[in-house]
């Protein structure tokens, strides 16, 4: 294992713990204590994955994420400390792939890192069928392009993967467990993460003038919807 992880956090204790745990698991680690330094480190090291604290000082994590997203599709995991920060992730559709709340267990962080890196390596070529169309929505898992009435949707990796699972099963309810397994791989955290990303996906499609998708079926999961 030789993937490089960039850790951006202004709390040195947290950086030290993450860095030690990641190195112990065989990753190469580079660190930054601020947003601007993090962006410089990204360009210098081209990491495979980024762990990014939301509550940075001069440039907050959401802004750092936006700037990184302009130049890379590397998975980004947010580190958050408060419930209102999780709300921000939803509201701002910040472009992260996952989040971990502080206090964190290093083992859980490692599991999320490993899962996202596996997804990145796997790419979109697991399935034989690669092109889908349901109503105004089209999806190409080879080029990883999603479009509404022919206009490209700006989706994160996670949102694209969620939409893929739904559109592959347009007439079925997809369980939360299936979504977790297909999109996140092995999962140790709370299943709230599905709601967070589904809500972002739903909002993006709606804002683009599309139909309501990702209809929740209480206690079971989600269906594509298209209502």
């Amino acid at each position: 294992m030789s993937e490089t992880i960039l850790v951006i956090d202004d709390a040195s204790d947290v950086r030290d713990l993450l860095s030690f745990s990641l190195k112990d698991a065989g990753y190469r680690v580079v660190e930054a204590d601020s947003g601007p330094t993090g962006i410089e480190m990204y360009h210098a090291h081209q990491p495979d994955l980024i762990l990014l604290d939301i509550g940075l000082g001069s440039m907050d994590g959401l802004e750092v994420c936006r700037q990184l997203r302009a130049v890379t599709s590397a998975p980004i995991i947010f580190l958050t400390s408060r419930a209102d920060e999780v709300d921000q992730l939803v509201g701002f559709a910040a472009g992260g792939d996952d989040y971990v709340t502080k206090p964190f267990s290093p083992k859980v962080v490692l599991a999320r890192v490993s899962s996202l890196l596996r997804r990145k390596q796997r790419g979109g070529d697991d399935d034989e069928r690669t092109k889908f169309q349901v109503g105004p929505l089209t999806l190409d898992t080879e080029s990883r392009l999603a479009a509404l009435d022919g206009v490209a949707l700006d989706l994160t990796r996670t949102e694209f993967d969620l939409l893929t699972v739904l559109i592959e099963n347009p007439a079925r309810v997809v369980t939360r467990e299936t979504l977790l397994e297909r999109v996140w791989g092995e999962w140790y955290g709370d299943t709230h993460v599905v709601e967070v990303h589904m809500s972002r996906l739903r909002n993006k499609v709606k804002k683009a003038g599309g139909p309501s998708i990702g209809t929740a079926v209480r206690g079971v999961g989600y269906r594509l919807g298209l209502t």
């Binding site: 713990l17 745990s21 112990d24 698991a25 083992k107 859980v108 092995e186």
Partner: peptide, 19 residues
């Protein structure tokens, strides 16, 4: 699936050392 609470011994030692 491994137990998420089961940190590696090295990580636990690091945590103890720095507490």
């Amino acid at each position: 699936m491994t137990n998420p609470e089961a940190e590696s011994e090295a990580v636990l030692a690091f945590i103890r050392e720095r507490q």
